[in-house]
């Protein structure tokens, strides 16, 4: 079976019902895409299929033969980062980092289809991606920043207080 991943054609020989996630991680040895739930509930495994965000943990590999698949390894590099990846670093978004590939892939699909999403659009696109570390406010802010919009209402605010005792 042939897969088109990040613009490169790859030959894989997994059982046809194997979820795309495991083919990407094990056979193609691209471990940026993560396993979180296996039920389409967390978004850690998000990749693009013909430009749309999908959950690779519930996508049988046979169903994507011939389609164009993009993973986190394919949207930008340290030298040529995706605008989201620059914003992610600028705002110190990641904590443990485990969910972040999936978050970035959902956000990248959103911006590709809608370059200046409003808050509702962002919420709708990102609600399928869980973050146990609670980086949502920064993810929201980074999407706003990467799409050249005014600061997010969820952005981190910090003030200082003089000790009184």
């Amino acid at each position: 079976m042939k897969l088109l991943i990040n613009g490169v054609e790859k030959e894989v020989n997994a059982d046809p019902d194997t979820p795309l996630l495991w083919v990407i991680r094990e056979e193609l040895k691209m471990t940026g895409t993560k396993f979180g739930c296996g039920m389409g509930l967390c978004g850690a495994c998000t990749v693009h299929l013909n430009g749309q965000a999908i959950r690779s943990c519930i996508t049988p590999v046979q169903s994507v033969e011939g389609a164009s698949i993009t993973t986190i390894e394919g949207i930008g590099s340290v030298d040529q980062p995706h605008p989201l990846q620059s914003a992610w670093q600028a705002l110190n978004v990641p904590q443990c980092g485990y969910c972040q590939s999936g978050q970035l892939m959902s956000a990248a699909a959103l911006l590709a289809n809608n370059p200046t999403p409003n808050d509702e659009d962002i919420m709708a696109a990102m609600t399928g991606n869980l973050c146990r570390c609670g980086t949502y406010p920064r993810i929201h802010a980074a999407i706003r920043q990467a799409s050249g919009q005014a600061e997010s209402p969820m952005a981190a605010t910090v003030a200082y207080w003089e000790a009184q005792v």
């Binding site: 605010t157 200082y160 000790a163």
Partner: peptide, 18 residues
Amino acid sequence: PILRMPQTPRIEVVIVKS
């Protein structure tokens, strides 16, 4: 379940200088 982005409130942090 755990919290998702739409359920997440605005969070403001105040740090005491010390």
